[in-house]
Design a protein around this nucleic acid. Sequence first.
DNA 1: CCAATGTATTAGGTAAGCCTAATTATACAA
DNA 2: TTGTATAATTAGGCTTACCTAATACATTGG
Lengths: 216, 216
Amino acid sequence: MEADTPRIEEYLESIYKLQQEQHPVSTSRLAEHLKLSAPSVSEMVKKLAKKDLVKHTEKGVCLTDEGNKIAKKVVRRHRLSERLLTDILGFKWDEVHDEACRLEHAISPEMEDRIAQSLGNPKTCPHGHPIPDKDGLFEKEKVRPLSELKANEKAIIVNVFEEDPKMLQYMACLGLLPNVCVRVEEVAPFGGPLIVCVSGSRYALGREVASKIKVK
Amino acid sequence: MEADTPRIEEYLESIYKLQQEQHPVSTSRLAEHLKLSAPSVSEMVKKLAKKDLVKHTEKGVCLTDEGNKIAKKVVRRHRLSERLLTDILGFKWDEVHDEACRLEHAISPEMEDRIAQSLGNPKTCPHGHPIPDKDGLFEKEKVRPLSELKANEKAIIVNVFEEDPKMLQYMACLGLLPNVCVRVEEVAPFGGPLIVCVSGSRYALGREVASKIKVK
DNA sequence: CCAATGTATTAGGTAAGCCTAATTATACAA
DNA sequence: TTGTATAATTAGGCTTACCTAATACATTGG
C-alpha cells in the first residue's frame, strides 16, 4: 500500500515525529503541528484509519506498521533532502526545513538513492536525527535532554528537536551543534538557566532551549 | 502577481513550450501535452485569462507578459533541476524530465539561486535548451532541424526537442548530443532516412527523429 | 455529583481540479 | 450551400482537503 497523496505523507510524517514525544498522538497536537484546524485533522485521521495507516483509539492516534513504513520513507527523503541542501548546495542548517518539507514529496525512489549515494549514505540529517535506510532501519541512540545534566557533567550533543530557524540560528551561533561536546558548569535552581561551556566559551542557556538539545 | 498553484505553473510552462512550435496554442494541443481532457483545459484557460496570465483569442491561447514571466521562472527551475540531476546526482539525460517536472514546483527562489551557483550558472539544460536567467533573459540560437540539412552539410547539435526517455536513450546511444558535430552523408528521397556521420560512425536516421534535433 | 473547561467530532460549506456527456461553433469538402 | 468532421465549450458531477459553527464527550475541581 502506498501513500496516495502528499497530504497523507505529511500527516504520517507528523504523527511519526510527534510519537517520539508521547505515544498516542492527540488530534489537537497533530492539528497544531500541521497548522490545520482540529476538525480537518479529525476527518483525515478517519481516512487514514480506513486505509489502515493509523489506529485510532480513545487515547489518540498511532501509526500501524504500514503507516510507520511510509512515514519512515518520507522522513528518509526529508532528511536526505536536508543533507543535500547543506552539504551540496551550501545552505545553513536553519534554512533547510521548509525546503525539505516540499522536496520530500517531489523525490522519486531513484532520486532518493542517488542523493544517498552522492552523499556517501549519511547516517543523520544536519540536526543530528537518524536517516532511516531503505528498509526503515536506523540506530537509535540513548539520549537525554541537556537540561537534565547536573553541574560539571560533560556530554556530546546528538541532535536537536527544533525546527524554528531563529532558534537554530541561535544555537549554531553558540556552537551548539551535533557531535559537539558541552560541559554544564552550573544549574540555576527553580527552572533557571544552565551555564554551559562549549568549545571554550561559556553561555547561559534557558531550560526551554536546553530541553530540546539531546545529548549522550 | 504570482502563480497561485503548481497546476497554474504547469499550464503556463506547457503553453510556453508549445508556443515555440506554433504561436497561438490550441486547447486540444494543450490538453494533449498536459494529458488532460479538453474541457478541463478549457476551464483552466478561462481562469488563467481572468488572472491576466494568458490571452484567449479565437485562434488559441497566448501568454501575457505576466504569464510569460512566470512560465520562464518555471522553465528556469525545471532546467536547473535537470542539471542538478545530471551534473551532481549522476542521472542520465533521459531520466531527468519527469523528476524535474515535480522538482520545479518544490524549489524556492533561494534554492534556485543555490543550484545555479553550485553549477556555475549553466546556460543550458542537459538537452541543450537555454536556462533563462533571473530576469528571464537568455540567448536564443538560430537553429534549424537536422532533417533540413542537405547531403554533405555539417552542423553542430544545439538541442533536442524530445522528452521521451526511450527516444533520448536512442539518441545518446548514437552520440547525438548537444555540441556534437554531425555531417549528413546522404538524404534519402520521399521522406526517407538521413545517413549521418557522428564522431566517426555512420547511422541511418529517420526524418521524424532528425526533425527534433536542432542544429546550427 | 455537577458544572466548567477542554478535546473531539459532526454538520454543512467552499475551492480547486479534474471528469464525461451533450452541445455549439468552425471549417472544409462535396 | 449543406453535410460532416473537428474543435471548443457548457452542463453537471466527483474527489480531496480544507474551513467555521455547533454539538458531544471527558475530565476534573468545587
